[in-house]
Amino acid sequence: MKALAGLITLVALYAVVSVGTIAARDSTAETIYVLSQDDGILSVIDPKVDEITGKIKFPGKPAAFTISSATGEAFATLPDSGEIAVVDLQSQKLVRVLKVGGQPFGIAVRADGRLFVGDWSANRVSIVDQTSGDIFAKIAVGRSPAHLVLTRDGSRVYVADREANSVAVIDAQRFEVMKEIPVGRAPFALALSSDEAQLAVANVQSATLSVVDTSSLEILSSPATRAMPYGVAVTHDDAEILVSNQQSGSISIIDAKTHTPRAEIKVGRYPEGVAVLKNGSKAYVANWFSASVSVLDLKANTEIKRISCPEGPRMVLSASAAP
């Protein structure tokens, strides 16, 4: 009986829903991925048509994800079960589940195959092998690490320690915390500029953005946002910072040089994750309460489309097509 139950669990776990087909893309084409926690689905949006062209089923309730451009895989944290689910973006299939334990939340992947995974309740970041799930190292950080971001060369990780009101700066070669930078209250999401000179940190409770100079590791500026900033992105030309204001149901566009607000765009209810296309033409916002994705025109600073998606969208990433 145990075997049978196990088999059923396995079948349920590996069930993959695939809706529609993916149009052939050139290798430079970008794709938008939106992760819905409640329904456990990664939606694939083609920015040429702004429609969902595929839905990849994850087990459980995935909270956050990252994409490896080296392997074309997406890694999603499952805080309930202490696992990381890995899907192949080309075949849109679940390929493996890594058991890491604890409550994994924020995640980033390095080109050498190592995952940096925050543990929300154990207050640490684990370095995990992306294939075997083996843990190489555990680094203690401040309370309740939320999202984390890795530099392009993989030398440094920044972690938003939500309950510690600080950002941990980790030397990703030595696996050591270089500094805990005090920021606003309840930092949750963060984003690096393309030149990696600035780190923008969204502070949920204080309704501010902490802009960190990544060479001095000092705060450059703390512009006000609207209520409960939950997501942040920087345009690829480093001109603008986009912040999703969860309680205000809007996106603030902040000038990345002067750190003053340029515009506010109304979106769906309780927006969270936000991502910008490389050419800067459009942004995509996960509206958690509305179960939709807002498409923003960043020239006109208006919402041009709202796409219905599976329940609980919280995180959006833009990635070039899998190799």
Partner: peptide, 25 residues
């Protein structure tokens, strides 16, 4: 047996619910 297995899975899923934000309207 199948029914039991499915029931067990359901119960497990309900108990093991994680730190996922909830909504009521």
């Amino acid at each position: 047996l199948l029914a039991f297995a499915i029931l067990s899975m359901g119960a497990h899923a309900a108990l093991a619910h994680g730190p996922t934000p909830q909504k009521v309207e």
